[in-house]
Simulated scan of single mutants.
Amino acid sequence: MRLFFDARYIRTDFHDGISRFSHELAHAVFAAAPDAGVEVTFIVHDPGQVALLPAGAPTVSLHAPTSVLEPLAALRLNRYRPDVVYSPMQTIGALGRRFGLILTLHDTIYYRHRTPPRDLPWFVRLGWRLFHLTYAPQRATLNAADAVATVSETSKRQFAAVRLTKREVVVLPNAPQRLAELAPAGAMPGAAAALNIVYMGSFMPYKNVETLVRAMAHLPGRTLHLLSRISPARQEELEKLAPADARIVFHGGVTDTEYAALLSDAALLATLSLDEGYGLPIAEALELGVPAVVSDMEIFHEVGGPGARYVPARDARAFADAVIGLDDEGARAALVAAGREHIARFTWPESAARLLAASRRVVAQRAR
Results as ranks from 00 to 15, higher is better:
T104I: 03
H113C: 01
G96T: 10
V84R: 08
N143Y: 03
L142A: 01
R129G: 02
L101P: 06
Q138H: 15
G96W: 11
A94N: 13
F123T: 08
R79K: 14
T108K: 00
L101F: 11
F99S: 07
H106I: 00
R112S: 13
R112Q: 15
V124Q: 12
G93Y: 08
D83V: 06
P82R: 07
V84L: 07
L101N: 10
F123V: 10
G127A: 05
Y111D: 11
T141V: 13
L105R: 14
G93N: 05
T115N: 01
R129T: 13
P137K: 02
R118F: 11
A136Q: 13
G96R: 12
P82W: 05
L95T: 12
R112P: 00
Y135E: 13
D83Y: 08
A136M: 04
S87T: 14
R139M: 11
T104K: 02
M89R: 04
N78G: 09
R81Y: 01
R98Q: 12
P82K: 08
G96P: 09
R81Q: 12
S87I: 03
F131K: 13
R125W: 09
T141I: 13
P82S: 11
L142E: 06
N78M: 04
L120W: 14
V85R: 03
P117T: 05
A136Y: 07
G96I: 09
L142T: 09
L120S: 04
I92M: 15
T115Q: 12
Q138Y: 10
H113Y: 15
L101Q: 09
R114Y: 00
R129W: 06
R79Y: 03
R139T: 04
Y111N: 07
Y135T: 15
R129V: 15
R112N: 13
H113D: 12
Q138G: 13
R114M: 05
R129C: 06
V85F: 03
